[in-house]
Nucleic acid binder design. Sequence first.
RNA 1: CGGGGCGUAGCGCAGUCUGGUAGCGCACCUGCUUUGGGAGCAGGGGGCCGCAGGUUCGAAUCCUGCCGCCCCGACCA
Length: 577
Amino acid sequence: MYWSKLFIPTLREVPAEAEVASHQLMLRAGYVRQLAAGIYSYLFLAQRSLMKIQRIIREEMEAIGAQEMYLPALNPAEVWQESGRWDVMGDNMFRLKDRFGRDLCLGMTHEEVMTSVARGELNSYRQLPQLWYQIQTKFRDEPRPRSGLLRTRQFTMKDSYSFDLDAAGLDLSYEKHYQAYNKIFRRCGLKFMAVEAHSGAMGGSQSHEFMVISDAGEDYVAVCEATGYAANLEKAVTLPVPPVHGDPSGDLVPEEFHTPGRKTIAEVADFTGLPPTAQMKSLILVADEKPILVLLRGDHTLSETKLEGFLAAKELRPAHPEEMRQWLGADAGSLGPIGVANMRILADNALRGRHNMICGANKDDYHLKNVTIGEDFQAEFADLRQAVSGDRTHDGKGVIEVRKAMEIGHIFKLGYKYSESMGLRVSGDDGKEVTPIMGSYGIGVERILAAAIETYHDKNGIVLPPAIAPFDVVITPVNSELPEQREAAERIYRECREWGLDALLDDRKERAGVKFKDADLVGIPYRITVGKKISDGVVEVFDRSTGANTDHSAHEAFEDVLRRVKSTNLAAAEGKA
RNA sequence: CGGGGCGUAGCGCAGUCUGGUAGCGCACCUGCUUUGGGAGCAGGGGGCCGCAGGUUCGAAUCCUGCCGCCCCGACCA
């Protein structure tokens, strides 16, 4: 294609609305324009890149035997009411009415619609397993869209669904997706990791998220390079750093002391001169309308996900100040477990074996010392705290680091939630009805592009891997006015095209600097520069990622680029990128 | 939804405090010169100053209400 005829509106300055690198660069490079909060138009270059990403996804989905479909984005309320999610989704769902007043919504995900297709047509165990997928627009009324394409209200998702006869079948479908996702993200050139995740309200037994480490991300992962451990922070199980200060020894009796105005862990630590690790932090929560007292080491934070999981609670919230006073007789800041009989008491595993600690006295402005779990009161132990950097892995062999990350894919074993609630059943080999077991697997298509740009950019702009760059190569005559350069560039351009390279000819009547800057900004991996040396039949091949220039004879330049594109793509696919 | 910031040309901004004919840089158009990393000179076009109401002889500027966008938090299959 000829740059002079394309719409690539590059900007010299960064629009004020953009904060993260991928957002700034996609605006500057003319990839996207914003229509409203969390709603973007993908212009020519972005669309071209997204199409390449989708092609990779399709190839890998097909490789595991998944069949592509295309379901409606406009959904009747009924299917969502059947699964119960019409209510669960709340304000996150875009809802509308048709002219007869019937309720409709815009699809946020497609378990319901896929299941409704399946229940009408799948009749026999002989038809299983089935792997169905689509690449389609999703709508979610996010409370706060942010960071450009990282969290939007309308986005493209590859979502697939598996239907299997039994759990062993689901394991296989899940494993196929796990492998396919690894291939997809590798081919896209991303540095990513699969982490254990919690399945949340999707239900189900197992779940992995595919994460790209990036400060622009909204998720946290606990990783250990030495052992290869990786988990979502909400779910990470680690060993705490032991307290530096040993506990007071002996079989001591709890003793009240006055702590006027000292409410926080830090204030009490300061007051007593003992580190936060010497304290037990008391939190009051309400799980499904029942009060719970949770104890953590002073320096630790509760993982609500773990608590919710441990209690199998549907709803969890912090207690209101009035409730704390009513149940324990004191305000937050002076609460503790001793003498508490009207609620369940849970203690985090990090408190196991500790003794003579400090906690609230359930009396305003008083704390207790010499408190020991098991002696002075009883509690159930569980893993309830959030991991922190510096913890050791659960096998004790490595050190955990907590990093920010962005989620680009998520796979779930759904179980029977949708097949059961929506009445999907097939005949088994014994003639009896069987409910198929399902899995659900998503990839955020735009997030792949955003993650790649977050990972690969420099001060000059975007540096995309060739597999997902809008073009493989740009041919740039330094001075388009000179027939010798113009004609040579044209010739090289045609050769590139003939050999299957996705080539762009920068035939604009601009100075060389402008063309170089633009090519760098939009992230084309290779540039063939046709300049003065063309009179000796020599051109240069510029590698965007290394900045290196190499001379080649004009008729061999395309071969060099072709070789580089192929080897880079191959290395990425093999995970050697 | 709570806290903060911002809305003036396509982009970046000044002007608002102290009311008096709307400016600068980049981009865009024309011409000449220039041509290996965002050229120079000359000329030119482009604005419901977010919207509505109010105060005033007069409002980008003061007052009231609303809308939009961004950031932090809450929230997030």
